[in-house]
């Protein structure tokens, strides 16, 4: 468990750095460090499926952030009422920690007991679906509706991005669009 706590502390430090640092590129790199530590944490918790997905999605997000959206000179606005902001933040964090300390006492221990439905999947999943990877049998057989909804969300997201970002969607009133990338 010790390496898990080290990873958690590293993630928290990297997240604070990502918020507080002035340079945007360094901030993106710090966000990448959070994602890398999270994928290693999944690996420590023996969830290689989630670790692989987290790693590759993190890489793609970083590439998109650095390559496609980041400009060199985006200014940060840090002036203003820092005292009031810090005070409100500290009050809310301490309130949250107080409530959390009360709630976490009643929770069961980390990872125990395995839930009822999940234990049924673990016992019968292999014989019923024939898939050696239990994660595949859950997400594509028992919980296939979840996967269908997730696929719909991704499909809608892609359609939305393409509809907003493509050249025809950004033309001014009365402007003629001649773009070789668009299908006519």
């Amino acid at each position: 468990m010790l390496e898990l706590y080290i990873l958690l502390i590293f993630m928290i430090v990297a997240a604070v750095v990502a918020v507080e640092i002035k340079d945007l590129l360094s901030s993106v790199v710090a966000v990448g460090a959070v994602g890398l530590a999270l994928s290693i944490a999944f690996l420590v918790l023996k969830a290689p499926d989630v670790a692989i997905t987290q790693l590759v999605v993190e890489i793609l997000c970083l590439i998109i952030l650095i390559r496609a959206t980041l400009r060199k000179d985006l200014p940060f606005s840090t002036s203003g009422r820092w005292f009031l902001n810090t005070l409100i933040t500290v009050i809310f964090i301490s309130l949250f920690l107080m409530v959390a300390a009360k709630c976490f006492k009643d929770l069961p221990e980390f990872g125990y007991p395995t839930m009822k439905v999940a234990s049924t999947y673990l016992k019968e999943g292999f014989e019923k679906t024939g898939a050696a990877n239990i994660v595949a049998s859950v997400i594509l057989d028992y919980r296939a509706y979840d996967t269908l909804g997730e696929a719909t969300v991704l499909f809608t997201a892609v359609i939305g991005v393409l509809a907003i970002v493509r050249r025809i969607g950004r033309k001014k009133v009365g402007e003629k669009v001649r773009d070789e990338d668009e299908p006519r």
């Binding site: 998109i64 390559r67 679906t129 024939g130 898939a131 050696a132 892609v158 970002v165």
Partner: peptide
């Protein structure tokens, strides 16, 4: 093995791969 699960995997991979590449191209 495992019936239709590999076919579902192939369908999802087509969707995810093409969709994410399309988003990247559009943003670039």
């Amino acid at each position: 093995s495992a019936g239709v699960i590999p076919l579902y995997n192939i369908a999802i991979s087509l969707k995810v791969g093409a969709g994410l590449f399309a988003i990247f191209v559009a943003l670039v």
